[in-house]
């Protein structure tokens, strides 16, 4: 990747090459790598949209978890350029602390609501890390894994049947 520089986000989660959004045809590149994660099933994600060139003037600070290459990064908040396409404007900003990108914020993502991005299939292939606490919300339903596979349920079903219960 000729003009790209790497940003490590949240320690090990996301590597952004350049800045911008993969889904925006005339926008710059957002690519993701998955360092060290060998998928057990050898899965590869669907092909990413074809990367376009990263404009040289794009103000991309450099940061990494590896100390020797993070030397150039200065702490602060770095808004990326606004990139427009037919679906709207796209802009992200990153927050750098101690030479590491600690957050990626989507200032604009094609719709008015920055967080309602990918309803229009403009999904940004990125994941944001956070620590969640158990809280009480007023919800109508709780979606939780049943902690039993359907096969286990069937097996239990059979055991009950065999036991005549």
């Amino acid at each position: 990747m000729r003009t790209s520089r790497k940003l490590m986000v949240g320690g090990a989660s996301v590597v952004i090459l350049g800045a911008g959004f993969a889904a925006a045809p005339e926008a710059a590149v957002l690519e993701l790598a998955d360092p060290g994660a060998d998928s057990p099933s050898g899965v590869t994600p669907p092909p990413a949209p074809t990367p376009t060139a990263v404009p040289d003037e794009m103000p991309v600070p450099e940061a990494s978890t590896t100390p020797d290459v993070s030397a150039g990064a200065t702490d602060g908040t770095y808004p990326g350029p606004v990139v427009s396409n037919i679906r709207g404007d796209y802009q992200l900003q990153i927050v750098v602390a101690d030479g590491v990108v600690t957050d990626v914020e989507f200032l604009a993502a094609g719709t008015e609501a920055a967080e309602s991005v990918s309803i229009n299939a403009m999904a940004l292939p990125v994941l944001r890390e956070e620590i969640l606490e158990a809280q009480d919300w007023d919800v109508d339903y709780v979606s939780g894994a049943s902690f039993t596979s359907p096969a286990m349920v069937e097996s239990a079903h059979g055991a009950f049947d065999d036991a005549g219960l």
């Binding site: 998955d34 994600p45 990413a48 999904a123 292939p125 990125v126 890390e129």
Partner: peptide
């Protein structure tokens, strides 16, 4: 990550040292 290309939204949770480390799509 690939799920997002299908227009889906994702929240993953891992548990380490008793804490829930989550990752969510924007």
């Amino acid at each position: 990550l690939a799920a997002q290309a299908e227009g889906l939204h994702v929240l993953t949770c891992a548990v380490r040292e008793g804490k829930v480390f989550a990752e969510r799509s924007p």
